[in-house]
Write a protein that binds this DNA or RNA. Sequence first.
DNA 1: ATGGGTGCAAAGGATTTGCAACATT
DNA 2: AATGTTGCAAATCCTTTGCACCCAT
Lengths: 142, 142
Amino acid sequence: MAAIEREAYARLERCGLRPSPQRLLIMEYLIGHLTHPTVEDIHKKLCQKVPTLSRTTVYNTLRLFAENGAAQMLTIDEHRVCYDGIVEPHAHFYCKKCGKIFDILISDANLLRVSADLGGNKATEMQLYYRGVCAKCVESEQ
Amino acid sequence: MAAIEREAYARLERCGLRPSPQRLLIMEYLIGHLTHPTVEDIHKKLCQKVPTLSRTTVYNTLRLFAENGAAQMLTIDEHRVCYDGIVEPHAHFYCKKCGKIFDILISDANLLRVSADLGGNKATEMQLYYRGVCAKCVESEQ
DNA sequence: ATGGGTGCAAAGGATTTGCAACATT
DNA sequence: AATGTTGCAAATCCTTTGCACCCAT
């Protein structure tokens, strides 16, 4: 537990973000829950701990994280944005049935970075994702 | 022009979709405008031709297209979904400044398909995208 | 006291839904 | 007749905004 707190603090510092209590709280949640939570997920859970935490702050903070490379913003789910505490490039699988997002291992993620000719465009984020039906849902369909 | 109409018709047929006037209209637009239009874009433009076309129909139709492989749904822009008439896998670049989406050539798009171990997950769509600032906007920043 | 951070309530806006009208086989 | 399609208006709900308060420097 203390490890997560330390990592959260270090991540904020490394990204040049002031470690306010709310930011630490949200970053700790993100690092401790690699389940690609939505803003609502995070707000609901953290409100149990800190009832005064506002939704606005969660929105602002997560956006801030994404803009500063402290988290990844995922726009796979057409209905809502969600966030990922892992900032290293990796792929995601989105199941249309259950709505869950899974991490997908890429044989060589760095390959993806260079395989595209971006011209003069300056990329700060990269996302690779698949959409379909996950293994569990495929099973339960029969 | 007639070529696009024929292609639109063929695409609908190939995907098992009945070629209603509205569907043809929307598919023709999609094939004729590879600019990754939003629902609003399409609705606004096509309303000039067919004023009775409803936004609901545009929403429904585009979703239907995407679900049947007749178009690609792009969720790069966090604020709105847009669509692509090209169904072959390719990458996109989203400029945070001007909001435009550009096609990115991938040296071997099929490589991407097999480079990931999807386990038992059944993927129907794949998206690779980059976010950042496009060449033009980088220039105008200075 | 000054600037950044937070929270509340309200506004904004994209997307969906329910349902009636309509077309097509 | 039956089924699939369309259109309107209303509802939904995610996200942003404006503004006041507060804390830390």
